[in-house]
């Protein structure tokens, strides 16, 4: 199924029209799951998924149970790991990320608080997120 997502994306005539690629890719995945479910109506749905860290997050997931307690616990663990990783960032980058993502502050508000330009906030966020992502992949 996974390759289907990429292939369906490649087959799009004008992929630049997609507003939210991650939402779009998720929709493709959901459609494929539904198509397969219809095809194999008599068989239980089996999806072996692996999260970014190679852990098996689901063995027998129907689409509806993805938000179950198991996933919530995994997310809590990932968030906790992120909180530790954030400590390795320069102070301004770290607070910009927290203020923007946790507290929903705009670039402008954060720029005013930190006394830097709005453009600089974007740079901070790119730096912060890619640092987190890199550390999570280690």
């Amino acid at each position: 199924m996974a390759q289907e997502v990429y292939l369906r994306m490649l087959r799009l005539e004008r992929p630049e029209l997609i507003r939210s690629p991650e939402a779009y890719l998720f929709t493709i995945a959901a459609n494929i799951v539904r198509e397969q479910a219809l095809k194999n109506a008599s068989r239980p749905l089996h999806l072996a998924l692996h999260d970014a860290s190679g852990e098996n997050i689901s063995n027998e997931h129907s689409l509806g149970s993805i938000l179950g307690p198991e996933e919530a616990a995994l997310q809590a663990a990932r968030v906790h790991e992120l909180e530790q990783i954030l400590e390795g960032l320069p102070p301004k980058v770290r607070v910009a990320l927290i203020w923007h993502r946790r507290d929903g502050q705009t670039y402008k508000q954060i720029a005013a608080r930190l006394g830097v330009s709005v453009n600089m906030i974007k740079k901070y966020l790119v730096r912060g997120v890619s640092y987190c992502r890199r550390r999570l992949s280690e």
Binding site: A2, F26, A29, D51, I66
Partner: peptide
Amino acid sequence: AAGMLAVAIAC
């Protein structure tokens, strides 16, 4: 959750 599923699929 959607993000994680998409990551899972992509990876």
